[in-house]
Design a binder for these strands. Structure first.
Lengths: 120, 120
DNA sequence: GGCCAACGGTATCCATTGGTAACTGGCTAC
DNA sequence: GTAGCCAGTTACCAATGGATACCGTTGGCC
């Protein structure tokens, strides 16, 4: 069996979820939070070049999906802490599988691209 | 160690590769080709609603990245067969990890979304 | 001879999205 | 007083994703 549910049915919610967790920033947020809760700016600085708008969108979506929790401490200056939920933490395993693959095969892909560009 | 290479360095090629294989259609193409080579229309029909333009773009990118091969048989009507390379086939394992996760946690995510929408 | 289908795509257009740059508000430190 | 921190928001723009229509070639049908 290829996919026990069928990711091929366009109406299948699995595909919607694939869209979510396939998102570049979602993956990086999960990896960032893997070691423990972080604040907004810590996430922003840790991830690299993320527009705050985009990071906010990503975090809101993940909160909505139950992957992270958002805690606001009404202090001055404000403090907002993001934490992986157990479900979010369970995502780290498959994500690690993918990033491991990427790191393993990155040289081969780069070489394939070069070959392709040369022959073109 | 979080990611042996650092997916957090925006200049790290790993991130570019994550963008690629995180692509919705790339995932579905890999899953489709897992059982064996397919023709263009077979892919299109099997995947569901894909605009041919988008499928072409996806396939060209995957060919460039060395994930699939494209064989043209100059017959009438024309026949073009797409096949996973060994590297492409090795992608099925991590992808399966992700889709399994998605299928397992889909109900929980759906429920989380409903709770969120109700409370909003 | 005229018409249509099969195949593997292009060409064209529009909506959505991703991303940049600038700004907010309340406070504090210089 | 003015500059900065924090966690965003608001406009705005370029790129991308996607729907729809169309293409050339040939074979079969009438």
């Amino acid at each position: 069996m290829v996919t026990k549910g069928n990711a091929f049915d366009p109406n299948c919610p699995t595909r919607a979820i694939l869209d979510r967790i396939g998102d570049k920033w979602t993956v990086l947020v999960v990896l960032s939070l893997r070691a423990g809760p972080l604040r907004f700016t810590e996430l922003r600085d840790g991830i690299g070049r993320v527009a705050p708008k985009v990071l906010t969108q990503t975090l809101r979506r993940m909160e909505r999906d139950g992957l992270i929790t958002r805690e606001v401490y009404p202090e001055i200056p404000p403090r907002v802490v993001y934490t992986l939920t157990p479900m979010g933490a369970s995502l780290t395993a498959p994500i690690a599988a993918v990033t491991d693959w990427a790191e393993t095969h990155m040289p081969a892909i780069t070489k394939a691209q070069q070959r392709y560009d040369e022959s073109a």
